[in-house]
Design a protein around this nucleic acid. Sequence first.
RNA 1: CGGGGUGUAGCGCAGCUGGUAGCGCGCUGCGUUCGGGACGCAGAGGCCUGGAGUUCGAAUCUCCACACUCCGACCA
Length: 478
Amino acid sequence: MSENKKMVEAITPINEDFAQWYTDICLKAELVDYSTVKGCTILRPYGYAIWENIMHLLDMRFKETGHENVAMPMLIPESLLQKEKDHVAGFAPEVAWVTMGGGEELEERMCVRPTSETLFCDHWSHVLHSYRELPMKYNQWCSVMRWEKTTRPFLRTREFWWQEGHTIHETAEEAIAETEQQLNLYADFCENQLNMPVLKGRKTEKEKFSGAEATYTIEAMMHDGKALQSGTSHYFGDGFSRAFDVKFTGRDNTLQYPHQTSWGMSTRLIGAIIMAHGDDEGLLLPPAVAPVQVVIIPVASHKPGVLEKAEELRKELSKFCRVKLDDSDNSPGWKFSQWEMKGVPLRLEIGPKDIANNQCVLVRRDTREKIFVPLTELAAAIPAQLDALGKNLYARAEENRAKRTFSAKNMEEVLQLAAAENGYIKAMWCGDAACEEMMKEKAGISSRCIPFEQEQLSDVCPCCGKKAKHMVVWGKAY
RNA sequence: CGGGGUGUAGCGCAGCUGGUAGCGCGCUGCGUUCGGGACGCAGAGGCCUGGAGUUCGAAUCUCCACACUCCGACCA
């Protein structure tokens, strides 16, 4: 092994410079490449394959809960964006405008969609007539554009890929139930398939979506203790319906406005996966979304029978998992490192000695534990190991979160904790925006959410001393 | 948007007291290897991010622009 090579290929250690480590993983695991288009990244095949798996798993869940996929235009006329005043105030500063078409100035400029509430509402105003047609539960897989000033792969790019669910309902209760159901769906997906514990709660007024009545969120904690909003679900009441004149004839033959929701998850989830599970060896993918769950590495592949056996195993394994045989000319050691970098959960080594013993070596990416498995037992051992690895990822992430979750009763404790280490700081809050602002200014932390699971840490707000209304989880966020 | 850093071969870098470019890895070919990033030999590959200026002459000095990156601010 040459020292130089190691130096060139190595990524920045995770505890030395987390930001640089993150960028290194994105590039060296071949997830993304920077584009000539400023602020935009290219999802490379391996990165897109992760997204495809996420899309597939979520889409199945959406269909199971009665949602239908649709496709809306990519452009939004300015007049449409203007209809809901809070919404336009929130988004107008960061939209891209199209002003020319076919070489001629447009009558009305159009923005590239930053989100599609306005398009869905406009559509519904045309097609909705009766309560019998409700609920309408739509979802769209697409990309959106927001003119961000600072960008980072997956976490914040000008164009990003996502799903946006949009629904309208006859009653507020039904819409609120939908909002909660989708938030729970997201949380379950994160916890059971991405192996990432999340904190469920409501956003404060300051942090909520432009035009929403209430915004719910799931927050995941990254390796460095910062929070990442991993999914949101909004309840709109009938505000948009009124603004866009979406009406239906109710059971009592009166004209009514439907109650609306929207909810979304994006390619940002891939950033969450990287920062929640990755380590000094590189990426570490949850088995549910790993494009390759098992990589087969033949050892001494020039010896007769080795490649043949490896190919035979690949065929066999492909019946129950996503498997890849690396029969390239690289040395086994190189392959080990390469596939660890790419986060493949399980490695299967097969060489002449194994073949003689009718066994192989399985190596787990998370523990690097090597186990000898008889070839006849692979069909049971692989799913079991993938499952155990997923559970371990969850346990490790949860341990990190527990270690970095603190409670503060007064401002001194808040300041001390915020200065010491990244993490969640639980503290009471009076509900005033001024105190939320003060937390940002004095302690450099923002409200992540008002958790559904409340605790009574004290009776007063640590900022102003007035009676506390909620417990808020504060922290630094991506 | 403010502050710092960086733009030279596919990648990472050196060259920066001015005289038209080197190293490591990677890549191509052949051979030997193969249980933690293998080795030998032979090759290919850039004219130095873009623009302006100084100069007989600029990768090198000056100015401007652009891009990426890190830290803040902003952020649906």
